[in-house]
Amino acid sequence: MSKPELIKLIDTTLCTACRGCQVACKQWNEMPGLRTKQWGSYQNPPDLQWNTWTLIRFQEYEASNGDFKWLFRKDGCMHCADAACVKVCPSGALYHTEFGTVGLHSSLCIGCKACIAACPFDTPRYNPQTDKILKCDLCYDRLKNDELPTCVKSCPTGALTIGRKEDMITKAYSRVRELGGDANVYGDKFVGGTHVLYVLDEKPEVYDKLPEKPRVPLTIIAWKDWLKPLSLLAAGGVIVGSFFHYIIHGPKDTSGGDQANQGGGE
């Protein structure tokens, strides 16, 4: 019996930005809605945050020829095969599931935030109230029970689909051929191939917050290959994990971001 390696395909050209997925995710995962402000955009919360694992990004884009497009992109965990977060996680909270996705044992998370620094897609988020990292696990419990991830199930237009890895890659490329122009497949060519693929209408660099060439930071490769085995020898990995989190903190501010939204949560 082979492992059913899965891919979720996000076809941005079919998305109507109805945000069914954004809300369905919160409903199933029992994440609260937090207070936000109207900041001149339909996109809210403005970014992924601890209670928001899937977010529709809205972007008004005018091509050089004057053609206008309103781009919608569902943002969230890409479930990398070569996942920096799993590599860097000192406690084993982040792990690869049998579906190839990246799962999260919340109980094991020590809140060290190493994954935040490591993730090339800026996905994991920290909840200061619980001192835990939160992110999409592609509804691991639903997958185990033969149910679609809640985002995929809620999607009205077929913008979100899930299936066997090889089938979804074929599907993505055939869709791109059909679309022509600058349409492209995003995800299968880096970080070992992601388990979330995009069909993009425009070149990747056009999209906000979408790295053109994502890769696992070198420091993390070093961590994984020779430091992590060491750290796991330490009790619970806590102390060492925190230490290395400090070392590899990098340019990202992992502590702020969500703070503004903490007040008034329901």
Binding site: Q22, V23, K153, S154, P156
Partner: peptide, 9 residues
């Protein structure tokens, strides 16, 4: 099986 934002909530 699908739902929009309001239906999903």
């Amino acid at each position: 099986g699908s739902l929009c934002a309001k239906g999903a909530g």
